[in-house]
Design a protein around this nucleic acid. Sequence first.
RNA 1: GCCGGAGUGGCGGAAUUGGCAUACGCGAUCGACUCAAAAUCGAUUGCCCUUACGGGCUUGUGGGUUCGAAUCCCACCUCCGGCACCA
Length: 977
Amino acid sequence: MAKSVEPATDLPPYRYTAELANSIEEKWIERWEERRTYFTPNPVGEISEPNGELAKRPPYYVLDMFPYPSGSGLHVGHPLGYIGSDIYARYKRMDGFNVLHAMGYDAFGLPAERYAVDSGRHPDVTTRQNIANMRAQLRRIGLGHDPRRGVSTIDPEYYRWTQWIFLQIFDSWYDADRQRARPIAELVEELDAGARPWPPGSAANGRSWSALSERERRRAIDSARLAYLAEVTVNWCPALGTVLANEEVTADGRSEQGNFPVFRRPLRQWMMRITAYADRLADDLEGLEWPESLKLMQRNWIGRSFGVQLDFSVKADTEVAMPVFTTRPDTLFGVTFLAVAPEHPLLAGGLPASWTDDIPASWRGEASVPDAPDGGFASPAEAVAAYKHLTERRSDRQREGDEGPSGVFTGLWAEHPLSKEKVPVFVADYVLMQYGSGAVMGVPAHDSRDFAFARALGVPVEMVVQPPVEWLSEQGLASDAGVERWSDAYTGQGTSVGSGRDTDGLPSEEAGRAFADQLERLGLGEHQISYRLRDWLFSRQRYWGEPFPIVYDEEGDPVALPESELPVLLPELSDFSPKVSDDELAEPEPPLARLSDWVETELDLGEGKQRYRRETNTMPQWAGSCWYYLRYLDPTNSDAMVDPEVERYWMKHQGEPGGVNLYVGGVEHAVLHLLYARFWHKVLHDLGHVSSPEPFQRLFNQGYVQAAAYTDERGFYVEASEVEERDGSCFHRGQPVERSYGKMGKSLKNGISPDEIIAGYGADALRLYEMFLGPLDQDRPWETQGIAGVVRFLQRVWRYVVDEQTGEARVVDAPPPVGLRRALHRTIASVRRDIESLRLNTAIASLMEFSNELRAELGDEPPAREIAEALVRALAPFAPHLCEELWERLGHTDSVVYAPYPESDPDLAALDQVKIAVQVNGKLRAVLEVPAGAERDELEAAARAEEKVAELLAGAKLSKTIVVPGRIVNFVLDGKG
RNA sequence: GCCGGAGUGGCGGAAUUGGCAUACGCGAUCGACUCAAAAUCGAUUGCCCUUACGGGCUUGUGGGUUCGAAUCCCACCUCCGGCACCA
């Protein structure tokens, strides 16, 4: 809580109070702006001046994650990462680098649109106002950003290039042989020349390329593009008038926002072929300086698994080969059934008209379809239709939430490729159409899901991997217990059994290899890699986003607009809300579709004037944030996304992968944003538009600020600032409330505004305290009272340098005591080390320690200029306003922002005296103070000479003496150790 | 369920490679200044036993390796995060 300090009459006139801090801070923020202190020059182009000589320095790019301009103002948790990156950027700037550091705004998207709808104003108005508010709040924290580079995604001059990048992706295809994207024109050339029979990903169906009509060829090529249209199943929420991401749908199939029903339906949408890059996205993580945990999250998200795809032949209308994917070919002889996803194409063909008599009721749907007749459905076709109808209406989330496995028998039988036995084919919703081939081989003995399914429907279980005895005993089973007594599948490796072949008795891995080889020889299977990653759904039925630079011709096929048509401006629209409905079958209607004058257009795209319809979906919020770090490089360039020379200057580093040197942001973007941005960057790299293969070389995740939050008896959060504490209990308006801790923010009603803290203590104190609370990558609880410690520290630094009575600098131009100088150099060494690895809490602790030594050494005496100036420079990245003021009072006319960061002289930083612990039997008995270079013999002799040690050694038998120079002496007496 | 990460004073946290556990700060207690309070300055502050001298214990729990473990190994407990029918 900010205290309102009485204007204390008896304080010295130049005491560093909140008032003084605030006036210093405001003064310097204005001067920095006037002097363009943070303007960072490019080597060439429009913004290569002023400070042009800086561009000769080595470049360094420090980036924060693109903020979304919230309408509710900042709390002290928001700027945590920004302060950390700012300190690092300032340090690098003082250490001789040309540092690019800027802040723009990710201003399109759902939250901005919803805020506008709620406040009844146009998103363009509210968003720009929010940006202005946020800029003002951040400005006051003293972040050293180049203001010219702070782009917003909603600026037409920005989204023009977002659209341009979309066109680059649209105009590309992925060449799997060369493992990179290439212009689509090259694919057309290869096809026309006969160098390639067919576009990748589509099937020839016996026809040759040249036999196709022009329209057919065009559609085949369109489906090979990296950005393509496809009919996909989406979560459609008519009440919100939009499709939702899986994350936005609750477990019971309703919208997270508003709790409206969500339906799954197919819809023609723009997709991005990110799966083409799955291998590179996974492999290239290797060379990045990212937290290992985050790399792992990306790898899991991509979910690459190696296995075998093999064919079972199924007799439906005709004999068809049905591929299944497995990572466990060793369990092939344990297959007792197949299961296909409800959407599987096999089910579209003819199913048998009736069951054979031996089919149990559980297979006929009795166990799985709630309203099935007693004894099950009359025919496979009916059972499958009923089951599909049941599962169709459930969202993915619902499927996952269901208790038991379910499915029905299709009446079809498949032939095992090696044993030639017949196995039944089921339809089951635990099989996902989107993964593998949408069909699985059921091995109940060795897969938990197959096991549960088999038990539920009464399908046989056959063991083909002998589990180790330990597993059986853990399950409470005897070592010879049959598979019918198991309560779960054994999913580990073991000894192969039960195939009746010579692989029996081999370790199961070896048997698996043998089966895979045999399948490959027979042409019935091949090694394959599957991914969890899916292609990226890129359309939104929203107003507040980038329009696609796409129109449709009379046949409904997409046509890219030429660059000269960019930007496609987002048209003015007074009713920008999505069209909502309570009818499940209502057609999605993007707001832009209402503008028929805009949608219907006549253009000459090279074939004379023709009528076209514009694309009315918009891009998702991720689009703008996928490439902003490239626009920061060259924000005013109207000829290119970024000048290649400028791009190379900032992003290409000798002997390193290249990219942004340091990227700081929250772990919540671990997969989506960071994966999408890497994907776009790689496409741009393949097409020659950027020089580095990866966008972000070093990544750092800052933690969250947490704060006490309070819930009333109904479990609702109450405004934390209104809670009072009495006798260890908490009350809100007289009612008792319960305390918990959580991420600071609007939802827990526990936000604390930085404005409030700055008014009460100053921005430098806020900066220091946020960093001092704990390691930057860790969550930390906010307690405003703790800020007193850093305030006192800043006051002391001020008082060392400035006379509190006169305001004059009070340093002496004489050399400091040698001990103090040594302490200074030690401090500089550790502060530098700590900043480099972003351990800013311990960097500040070192500076405090030095300040304590200064006080102990000097008392009230003025410090030497050498000491004072080094301290001011060392502290400047952390407390820039205060240090700029002190620097000026010390007589400097140039800015401390570009003063060189103090260097540590290793000779001075080395300790001349060291303390050595002396132990007897591992227990500390004395501490020696000896010259730093003391040898083993000297140490041992000195240790023996200690009175207490001598006492303990007298009469005892010494079995061992450990001497580690510079560290420890340990006497081990007989009878111990 | 699977995969990660973390457990150190009343609190936030520190501790290069295994070598003085608790740096730095908050809070608390006492003192100086003050009519008083705030601010500031100074001292003390891991726990237990002891008037004292001194001694013992202590990094989630239990074991192990080592002359020596917060740090390495094994088992367990708790908390946090990610993924969740991925065949």
